[in-house]
Write a protein that binds this DNA or RNA. Structure first.
Lengths: 297, 297
DNA sequence: CACCCGTGATATCGGCCGCATATCACGAAA
DNA sequence: TTTCGTGATATGCGGCCGATATCACGGGTG
């Protein structure tokens, strides 16, 4: 089955005149007659009635022309789709993000992309920071959302920021405070995110605690915010988490602002070596200045 | 855009191996490489990553292969559709029928066709008997349902039969009778269907009335059963209609069986000159013996 | 009634495209 | 280092499809 034959069918069906149809197809009339004949032979169906003064469709021809239109439209859609993929409006964008971005940042940040690039499919995967960077470098991901720094030749832009807050069990003496200073954490058992899994987070927590002369000796480490908060609820220890974790309203866990205020940014990171138009257009949908979400109360 | 190029895309996307894909397409490997290259040039999109030991799809390639599959399936559907049209299972069948067939016969008779030939589109038109015959002869219709005889080289089969009944206004002296003999109609004003529009009906009514020595001098003629019954309801006269008209429960109209019992058949008529497989298969869905429907009560 | 114009079909030839054969370049595995 | 297998490249040939020229036919027109 050749597409040109179907185009011939549609052209003649539209014009009901071999000469005009041929002109529309940019060919001479005899080859058009041949195309129709070939199609009729191939399908073993008479498509047109060529009688006294005029061409008319047989019912079979009308039926098949209808379907042929759909096929041709599909083929044209391939070309349009290719153009859109080339210009970044369509296709698939593989986005990776750290777990803590899933609670509030991702839904917020991706909404404009879904609105403005509706044909762009977004594949979202959760990964830890080192894996994100590896995947970016090997072109398995197009964009990563992680806690900076990303480093090593990757291009990065901060799109979100939020303070670190203290998560502590309901019955804890500090749970009633309006805010807690890092100095007050001396001697408290801490549940933290492992350095290897989240260096950006770790560095900021380290800076915060060192300034208050607190040693970084977590009593437990967990590689998901939910797990950390679960341990907090069990009374294993206190934890320091990004403020957006508060949308997880776990029973038995209280959140208290932490002094000195320390912000944990989230950056959109791309590999300049593998930039595609789709990535570019996606990046334009992200905020130019980092967003500081309102407190969930 | 050529279909062969899309087939090449799909084959390589499936096999991820140029040699196997080429074998599947029945061509050698070099021309397949050329097809892919041509497609990549035409769409200006890189479809495959040919690297160390192996071929892999780019995201664009995966996206486009998906759409290409749809286009190819559509093209194959054209061939299947042509085959079905050829064998009569698909396509459009143009059916014409007299008005009085629409109340009960048509819905009943067409149901098996809809069930057994779901891909066959049925175009139903109401026409009067002479127009039906003309349309059959000029191949504007495939099948006609009319009150025989059809005559003149057309092939006809009775598929439905029903008695003629008397329709009369509610207050009429005969309205209460269990049945009325034609002889009782002497002097009654009659509303009949015009001879030119329905010769089959007319002939049977004529036979019925002549046997009872009643003159055929209708006080009014109407070319739709509904109009005739409307005139009956207004008291213009009595009418003789096929029993299936009783499903039209017009206020002010009573129906009474008529003696001597006279049946009005309905025949499926086709033009042997323009027989198509679709017509044949449609005819097989009609009853072999004429159906006599149960009284609607 | 003869002519002529317009229709689509047919005949013939030429160009070109796309296939097959042969070969190459490269990388991995032995 | 050799060898195998991959996909890419080079080249020549065959076939197909298109343009040109022409035909057959029918209807309108002087």
């Amino acid at each position: 089955m050749e597409l040109r034959l179907l185009q011939a069918l549609v052209a003649v069906a539209d014009e009901l005149h071999f000469g005009r149809a041929a002109r529309r197809l940019g060919i001479a009339q005899p080859p058009l007659s041949q195309r129709i004949r070939r199609l009729e032979n191939e399908l073993d169906v008479k498509l047109f009635e060529r009688n006294r003064q005029g061409v008319s469709l047989t019912t079979a021809g009308a039926e098949l022309a209808e379907q042929a239109r759909r096929v041709i439209a599909g083929a044209e859609h391939v070309e349009k789709l290719a153009h859109n993929i080339r210009s970044g409006g369509a296709g698939t964008l593989r986005v990776g993000a750290v777990g803590s971005a899933f609670y509030q940042a991702l839904p917020t940040l991706l909404t404009p992309a879904r609105d403005r690039l509706p044909e762009l499919r977004l594949h979202i995967r959760e990964m830890e920071t080192p894996q994100l960077i590896t995947a970016l470098l090997s072109a398995e991901l197009d964009v990563a959302l992680l806690r900076p720094p990303a480093g090593r030749g990757l291009r990065s832009r901060t799109v979100w920021r939020e303070p670190l807050v203290l998560a502590l069990p309901e019955g804890h003496p500090l749970a009633g405070e309006a805010e807690v200073h890092a100095r007050q954490l001396g001697g408290e058992p801490l549940v933290l995110f492992p350095r290897d899994s989240g260096p950006g987070y770790w560095d900021r927590v380290e800076t915060l605690l060192r300034a208050a002369d607190i040693a970084l000796e977590p009593v437990a480490e967990a590689d998901h915010v939910t797990t950390m908060l679960g341990l907090v609820a069990l009374g294993v220890g206190l934890s320091i988490v990004p403020a957006s974790a508060r949308v997880l309203r776990l029973t038995g866990v209280r959140y208290v602002p932490l002094q000195p205020r320390t912000e944990l940014p989230l950056a959109a990171v791309v590999n300049p070596e593998t930039l595609t138009p789709a990535v570019d257009r996606f990046l334009t949908t992200l905020p130019r200045k980092p967003v500081l979400p309102a407190d969930p109360g």
